[in-house]
Design a protein around this nucleic acid. Structure first.
Lengths: 224, 224
DNA sequence: GCATCCCCCAATGCATACATAGCCTATGGC
DNA sequence: GCCATAGGCTATGTATGCATTGGGGGATGC
């Protein structure tokens, strides 16, 4: 059972592959690609490629432009600001709900484990491990919110800013104070202090937003 | 120029028509329909219908179930709660931003005009006019937030709960106190009191959510 | 030399045809 | 009589072909 035998449909394969290619930078943000081009690249006909493109468009990773193929959506600093505003509010909501709803012990432990991973990564100065642990924390927090739609929205926007974060990860100082912020949020949740959890988390997110958008602007990155 | 000459593509026509049919109740929530069935209904082949279905799925109006056709998404009270939580946060954000960013005079006037329409509708006890004015207020508020992505999310979820609101509109008491709440939010925005604007609006939305979900539950509407 | 208009072509929009997979039913065996 | 299995049928998944459309390029006129 190491690898589930995936009888994936071509549409799903196309979707996954294109997604990966966008993250990996094989498809350049701002460029447009022809359907036939992508179809050949993936070794299938245009039909499943079109369907995959429609689904990816819904996730904001690319735009289907009638008669002009697909354009990989570039993320500008202003887009980052919009997205971070949304993530701030929705994750803040999750933090509040996590604190005053009955949070199960194991869910909170997921938070604490993520924090431990972040500490370890920081110790080792392993930025990529830290980024992974950071994502782990945020996704665990969102799960604590018990709102499937919020989970979907946040997952989508985290996808969209993935490229940007991959860049800024190496431009920013080591995120030592970020761990403290996470710890404080976690503690507020444990203490069932909803208001404090929400406020702490929002403040943390706003801080991150400021840091990242200023980094992008300072390095003259008009878009990624 | 009375009617713009629409050279609409079949995909767009299918999307618009299906959307209308869902709102009108011609397609029953919870039911599934075959692609061929819908294609014949719309007088076109399956291809544009499939594309329209994919786009509508992204908007949450229906689900494409592999090998099982499309299912019109039913909205249960629990779904309403999820959606209202999101709208509460995002509109609250917009109220805050509207208050402390430089709001243009005409944008605030749009709010006040919507409130006037609500007053008039209430005076005439015209529930449908009131609902239209209520939507007008919320959409004007969201526009004041200056965040395109928030606008898109709110528009999408307002679509999803449209059916539910159409039902509850006739079951609830005349929303007299709702107008007061809107007026208070508007005033806070005028006074550039971001915190108060946000809090007032969130409280208003939470009230609305409680009212609607209780109505649905009391009338035993498992879904609409 | 520049701007405008028209024509041709390429890429998409759409339809149709075929392959495939899942489900229902019927039949046979226990 | 009931359960299990096999086969067929139906609806989707995918490919392919053709018509359409919109844009780019070339040519012509000012």
């Amino acid at each position: 059972m190491s690898a589930a035998p995936k009888p994936k449909s071509n549409t799903v394969k196309a979707q996954d592959t294109l997604r990966e290619m966008i993250f990996a930078g094989d498809l350049l943000p701002g460029s447009t690609y022809l359907e036939a081009e992508l179809a050949e690249l993936l070794g299938m006909s245009r039909t499943p490629v079109r369907e995959a493109a429609l689904r990816l468009e819904a996730q904001g990773l690319l735009e289907v432009r009638p008669r002009h193929g697909v354009r990989i959506t570039p993320i500008a600093p202003s887009d980052m600001e919009e997205i971070y505003e949304i993530l701030t509010e929705l994750e803040g909501l999750c933090a509040e709900k996590a604190a005053d709803a009955g949070h199960s012990e194991e869910e909170v432990q997921a938070l604490e484990e993520a924090i431990r991973h972040m500490d370890e990564a920081l110790e080792a100065e392993n930025r990529e491990a830290w980024a992974a642990a950071d994502e782990e924390f945020h996704s665990a927090l969102i799960r604590l919110g018990h709102n499937k739609r919020v989970e979907a929205i946040c997952a989508m926007y985290n996808d969209q800013v993935r490229r940007a974060r991959a860049v800024t990860l190496w431009l920013r100082p080591l995120p030592t104070e970020s761990n403290e912020a996470h710890r404080a949020v976690c503690e507020a949740i444990r203490n069932c202090d909803a208001e404090r959890a929400g406020q702490l988390h929002r403040a943390h997110r706003r801080e991150a937003r400021k840091l990242l958008t200023e980094l992008l602007k300072r390095h003259g990155l008009r878009h990624v």
